[in-house]
């Protein structure tokens, strides 16, 4: 705790290393999305078509890029950038949404971004991460309900929205937080506040 007095002042400007590492994280998440696209959609869809909206739960995995990038990089726009880039990777490899993947990436990223902005980009601990996952889930549900499930009844819309939020909290928020913590422990994030924090605590 004595190190707090020499803590460097927080800068919200992106350094080059922030941009490049955010890109690496975004791309890595994009590759994960590609695997998830096949596993979740192509294999799971025939079964999930029968569910009254619970499919939103597993869709939470598509939200991890934004939260993970934000809690590691800790700059304004990080969630939006990470999620959008992961969406680009997903579309480039080839998925069932094409250009519209970018719309999803944009709205999902904005949802997470909004939460970190409300915390004034000063708090990237567990609670904001979980809330960002939830907000990202909410914006994903809205986008999906408008783009693909426009004719759905009230029950489906409600269940889908709640399931997406829960999925976002668990698969995006919690998982990203655990992952960031594990990454910090390896020392690979030493050039970031997220990494130095863990080192200082040891």
């Amino acid at each position: 705790m004595t190190t707090q007095s020499i803590r460097p002042t927080r800068s919200l400007r992106w350094r080059v290393v922030d941009i490049v590492v955010a890109s690496v994280i975004g791309v890595a998440c994009g590759v994960l999305f590609v695997v998830w696209n096949v596993a979740d959609n192509v294999i799971g869809d025939p079964l999930k078509a029968l569910l009254p909206g619970l499919q939103g739960l597993s869709h939470g995995m598509w939200l991890i890029a934004g939260v993970l990038t934000a809690i590691i990089i800790r700059k304004p726009g990080a969630a939006l950038y990470g999620e959008l880039l992961a969406a680009v990777v997903s579309a480039v490899v080839g998925n069932q949404w094409g250009w519209l993947t970018l719309v999803s990436g944009l709205t999902q990223g904005l949802g997470a971004e909004l939460v970190f902005a409300i915390f004034a980009y000063a708090n990237f601990r567990l609670i904001p991460a979980l809330l960002a996952g939830a907000a990202s889930g909410l914006t994903m549900a809205i986008t999906d309900l408008v783009l693909w499930y426009a004719g759905a009844g009230a029950t489906f819309s409600t269940v889908y929205t709640i399931a997406s939020i829960v999925g976002g909290v668990l698969l995006a928020g919690l998982l990203a937080w655990l992952l960031a913590k594990a990454l910090a422990r390896t020392g690979v994030l030493d050039r970031f506040a997220a990494g130095r924090e863990v080192k200082a605590a040891v």
């Binding site: 029968l50 499930y149 009844g153 489906f156």
Partner: peptide, 12 residues
């Protein structure tokens, strides 16, 4: 499949 979802859970 999306159509099927709406047939089952669309507005009545």
């Amino acid at each position: 499949l999306t159509g099927l979802t709406i047939v089952l859970y669309g507005e009545t």
